[in-house]
């Protein structure tokens, strides 16, 4: 089974980190497809829930580390919303670990690749969301 992961990456850190992974040729599985947003604070719980509703196996949100947000505090909102969405997922019986929030800086290409690898392995282990 190949998991399908939808990722929302902020332009300044997460996306830049993914770029650096590319420039550094860090290999990771092609399970992940990236949607670029300007700030992780733009990510709405509904984006995440719709992804699951439509059949995504995992959703990844990446933003700047705390205190590094390009927009001062957007990542704090992202943190709050992802936490909230995890609770909602749990309440309706979806494993909240299918949703992951990671702070990935523009210098953390290796971390990004590792995150994708680990997340993919985890999703492979727990199997698809919709069978």
């Amino acid at each position: 089974m190949t998991p399908n992961i939808v990722a929302f990456l902020c332009n300044w850190c997460g996306y830049a980190g993914a770029d650096l992974a590319g420039v550094s040729r860090f290999q990771y599985p092609p399970t992940i497809k990236i949607i670029r947003v300007m700030c992780s604070g733009r990510v709405d719980p509904v984006f995440i829930l719709r992804a699951f509703e439509n059949g995504a196996d995992g959703v990844l949100v990446c933003g700047c580390h705390i205190n590094d947000c390009h927009y001062i505090s957007g990542n704090l909102q992202a943190e709050k919303r992802v936490e909230k969405t995890k609770q909602l997922l749990k309440a309706i019986g979806i494993n909240p670990d299918r949703l992951r929030l990671e702070w990935v800086s523009a210098a953390e290409g290796a971390k990004f690749a590792t995150v994708v690898k680990e997340f993919t392995e985890f999703l492979e282990k727990i199997g698809p969301l919709i069978t």
């Binding site: 399908n4 939808v6 497809k33 949607i35 947003v37 709405d44 509904v46 984006f47 719709r50 992804a51 439509n54 059949g55 995504a56 919709i130």
Partner: peptide
């Protein structure tokens, strides 16, 4: 726009 993108990445993937 974002929901459309989500849809392409998921629905059609299925």
């Amino acid at each position: 726009q974002i929901l459309e993108m989500v849809k392409v990445l998921t629905k059609e993937a299925a």
